[in-house]
Write a protein that binds this DNA or RNA. Structure first.
Lengths: 211, 211
DNA sequence: GCGCTTGTTGATCGTTTGATCAACGAAGGG
DNA sequence: CCCTTCGTTGATCAAACGATCAACAAGCGC
């Protein structure tokens, strides 16, 4: 329950203490949102409420540090490279990417803090999902189009795939509903269904054109 | 911005006033969540903070009234009947249902209050989505299976379809991202892709069986 | 015009909140 | 051993919070 360290009151070097507080704040804000009180945060970190202000200017500043901690470097640059690797069939690339992506974001902390931030109206979500669209969905759509068998999917179709997979995490961590413990197979099935759907649509379009 | 009625201080009969307060609370809680203060709620309703307690026992009670107001009767029983109407092709039924369903829930108030409730850990979401599964997704899966062309989709596949469509509303009302003003075409396309995906999978399964 | 009912208010209570500050005490150098 | 450094605390503040209550005033029967 506590940060895992240091009996209360024990001296710690500044870096470690700051880290401990931040970690506790992540857990606490994931659970209760920005409405969590500074006293709750302090208790979870195992320090006094006053000490928070030694390391963070205000509650707002601490919350922003939590946001940064959660999102900074969440999008692995390797993913973007692997998406473009045409030595691998596009269906394998799509499945591999979404297996990794969902594995990365399907955590209690990430899912919930992201949702809290969305409702609170922080710009964070818009920025993050803007990057997702530009760096992930758009390249994926281009790679799928380049294959030839699937037509050229619109971005809205890519968002539909994205949503169908992310929604597994929403069911689990936001609504507390039962979901497959390992989302891997569901992700693979979703990707397959998506590509099959694209292919069928592309076939129909080609047939219409021939007539 | 105000409930639309009565200059401040004017007398109103109890029913209308209660309605006015509830309406304002819906708008306010959708925007700010349960953290909205009673003074905000009162201001939006155009009454004094003290008056809230004439009509609701506590802030908690008011919030629960908001939850009920939003969810009670949201699931139109006609939908469940139309889902079973085998005089209509199942793909038409699926599309028609999701057009109506999304039209019903894609409102600022519904989407956001549902999400706030999920994060707050109210049982509401579990109950509601349990009903969705039992009364909508399961029947839909059965109807799709009865058609014969699409195989028998697992519930997890139905949730994937559901998620891909609901996610449009999440993007719009939670993350404040641009989405098609009319989600209708995106819904229709999503349903079509889903069924095409099922059919391709079913074909593969049949072929495997023949070998 | 009077009195009664009832919807409404301003003032106020006790508590909780984010934030501040003087004082304490463990560690390390000389 | 003392002195300086610096991480930490308990006490405390002003503001904001949910909730209460006596007092007010609009409408209505008579």
């Amino acid at each position: 329950m506590d940060g895992g360290a240091a009996p209360r009151g024990r001296r710690l070097d500044a870096g470690a203490r700051r880290e401990q507080i931040l970690e506790a704040a992540v857990a606490c804000i994931a659970e209760r949102g920005f409405g969590a009180t500074t006293r709750e945060l302090a208790q979870r970190a195992g320090v006094t409420q006053a000490l928070l202000y030694q390391y963070f200017e205000s509650k707002q500043a601490l919350a922003e540090a939590v946001y940064e901690r959660i999102y900074l470097g969440r999008l692995d640059p390797r993913w973007m490279r692997e998406i473009r690797d045409r030595a691998v069939p596009v269906e394998k690339r799509l499945e591999a990417f979404y297996r990794r992506y969902t594995a990365a974001i399907f955590t209690y902390e990430w899912m919930r803090i992201f949702m809290w931030a969305g409702l609170a109206g922080e710009g964070l979500n818009r920025r993050y999902l803007g990057t997702v669209e530009a760096r992930l969905l758009r390249p994926l759509a281009e790679e799928i189009a380049a294959d030839g068998r699937f037509g050229a999917p619109e971005l809205e179709a890519m968002w539909a795939l994205h949503g169908s997979l992310v929604y597994i995490g929403i069911r689990r961590f936001i609504y507390d509903l039962p979901t497959p413990e390992d989302p891997g197979p569901a992700v693979a099935a979703g990707v397959r269904r998506f590509l099959d759907g694209l292919r069928a649509e592309a076939r129909r379009a080609r047939r219409r054109e021939l007539r």
